[in-house]
Simulated scan of single mutants.
Amino acid sequence: MTQRTVLVVLFDGVQSLDVTGPSEVFAGAEKHTPGTYRLCTASPDGAPVRTGSGLTVVPDRALSDAPGPHTLLVPGGEGTRRPDPRLTDWLRRHGPRAERLVSVCTGAFLLAAAGLLDGRRATTHWAHCGRLAREHPAVEVDPDPIYVRDGHVATSAGVTSGIDLALALVEEDLGRRAALTVARQLVVFLRRPGNQAQFSAQLAAQTARREPLREVQHWVTEHPDADLTVEALAARAALSPRHFARAFRTETGTTPGRYVDRVRLEHARRLLEDTGDGVEEISRASGYGTPEAMRRAFVRALGTSPAEYRRRFRSVPTRS
């Protein structure tokens, strides 16, 4: 079996979990199947680096002495705001030689600065997607998924999504059983689908300032199977449908319909992840009415069917 070298780049201001999360995944896979991964860390000059949380990390070597990697992993952190030119220059020269280029969180900015994301679809932490798009217009930035694969380049969102991506790569390399073993050791899901949204409906929308609108938001999340038309929600807020729709969008940043769609999708996801309820039962409980309506919503938003979504998360018996 071919051993794959995973080279993790270090720099001052790096996010420690961006380094240790994926590293633990690959190290766990190496323990499960010896001889499959070789982990190596390197900083621009081989000197210790200080992470954003104040920890000191000692690299194995300098980048100039680093082995040619199969997987080159670039973490994020505050240090990506003013990157070391030695690092971006090294990435520009050596990045294209790696069989896989991987970034975690704002590590995407380092890949972009080195020109390695030009013409590619990529993501980063949702709070920084706008900046990535502005500073690097040649990159097609997708703010929604927890990770994006474009050819041999993979970019991920915030901290824990780096673990999801690393598990997906282990599954690709060694199979589902090995990835599942590592996931169980780390007490995480085998892997969330890359198309899963980065945050919940409640986080995606702002909380309305006015009490009637806040009450409607809470009521929607607690009753996804109810009549959630604009007319019905406007009646709960004691507003006309037109006034309600305008006020809701102004105060939450999204339309009532889109908010309802997100709540229902999130509710269905949780039931698929945490229960053994059948798809038909979940579709009714989540307000879709029919399994086909729920399937269309999942494919549109996540690029996968409810059945496939559940398979990736859990192995639970379902009730017909």
Rank of each mutant, 00 (worst) to 15 (best):
Q3S: 08
V6R: 05
L10G: 02
S16E: 15
S16F: 09
P22Y: 01
S23N: 06
E30M: 01
T33F: 00
G35D: 03
R38W: 01
A47M: 08
G52W: 07
G52V: 09
A66V: 06
P67I: 10
G68C: 02
P75V: 01
G76K: 13
G76I: 10
G77V: 11
R81T: 13
R86L: 13
R86P: 04
R93M: 07
R97L: 10
V102G: 01
V104G: 01
A108D: 10
A114G: 07
L117K: 02
A122F: 12
A122S: 10
H125I: 08
W126R: 15
W126G: 03
V141M: 09
V141G: 09
P143L: 07
D144L: 07
D150P: 10
G151T: 05
G151Y: 06
H152A: 14
G158H: 03
I163Q: 04
A166W: 07
V170S: 09
E171T: 14
E171F: 07
R176C: 08
V182Y: 10
A183C: 06
L190G: 14
G194T: 06
Q198C: 10
Q202A: 15
A205F: 03
Q206T: 09
T207E: 12
R210C: 00
P224K: 00
P224Q: 02
P224W: 02
E231M: 00
R236I: 00
F244Q: 02
T250N: 07
T252C: 07
G253V: 00
T254L: 12
T255V: 08
P256Y: 05
R258H: 08
R262L: 15
H267N: 08
R270Q: 13
G276I: 14
D277H: 14
E281D: 14
S283N: 07
V299K: 14
L302Q: 11
G303S: 06
T304V: 15
T304P: 03
R312K: 11
T318S: 11
